[in-house]
């Protein structure tokens, strides 16, 4: 079997970058929505969660329209002399958008669990909101934020549909492991497909199992920490 390992590096690079992007955007969105008290909360939450429930091809279609030659972002990039469609950054965009709701939902849940008095106490002590966020809010919500990050990573690693639509299947450039599996299987190279399948299977299982044990461990420590 003639194995090309480029999908592995592309996948890892894409998943890590997408996780980083999702971490900050997801956390920011979670914090804003958790603190928002208006009537539009349900709608905003719905929109932010959509990429999780929509078929990846639908997400891919929207991204294609948005970043395509005639889309708003596409036009802007064109004016700057560049484009993202069918380039490596497109894999990151696709993976980030699809992984975003997992980060957002999980960390929002964790942020809303925080005892509001603790944050208020920090405010009365004269500390800036920025500092309170990183020194109090994030540490208190850390188990949830970490879980969201892991889930987002796993989801980004497995992204297929939206990636295919906006990044295409260019070996050595945009072909991630899930794409490699699909095209190997379609081309009758079942052994090659199986090798990647086993790899993804193993990585996902290990990541999720570790997370479960870690959550269990946290659950033992945190309630004591938060005793009121």
């Amino acid at each position: 079997m003639d194995m090309d390992f480029s999908p592995l590096w592309i996948s890892v690079k894409t998943a890590l970058t997408a996780t980083l992007v999702t971490f900050f955007f997801g956390l920011a969105a979670a914090w804003l929505v958790a603190g928002y008290r208006g009537k539009l909360k349900g709608l905003i939450d719905g929109v932010l969660t959509l990429p999780m429930v929509l078929p990846p091809t639908v997400v891919g279609f929207f991204l294609l329209v948005f970043f395509g030659k005639n889309g708003p972002a596409g036009k802007l990039l064109h004016a700057l002399g560049t484009q993202v469609i069918f380039s490596w950054p497109a894999t990151v965009i696709a993976a980030s958008v699809v992984a975003f709701p997992l980060m957002y939902k999980t960390s929002r849940g964790a942020l809303e669990q925080i005892d509001e008095n603790i944050v208020n106490a920090a405010r009365t002590l004269g500390v800036s909101e920025w500092k309170i966020f990183w020194k109090v809010t994030v540490p208190l919500a850390w188990p949830g934020i970490a879980a969201g990050t892991v889930l987002a990573f796993a989801r980004a690693l497995g992204e297929f549909g939206a990636t295919l639509m906006i990044a295409g299947n260019i070996p050595g450039k945009t072909q991630t492991i899930p794409l490699a599996i699909f095209f190997a299987a379609e081309g009758g190279e079942m052994e090659k497909a199986l090798a990647w399948v086993v790899f993804i299977f193993a990585v996902s299982l290990v990541v999720m199992t570790l997370m479960n044990y870690w959550t269990e461990y946290q659950a033992k420590i945190i309630p004591r920490n938060r005793r009121r």
């Binding site: 005892d115 603790i118 208020n120 106490a121 405010r123 009365t124 920490n225």
Partner: peptide
């Protein structure tokens, strides 16, 4: 005036210490 500039100490019922 925002809370952080009021210079008012507040002792909460559940103390609200930073557990971390």
């Amino acid at each position: 005036v925002p809370c952080r500039q009021r210079k008012i100490g507040f002792l909460f019922q559940n103390y609200a210490l930073f557990p971390n």
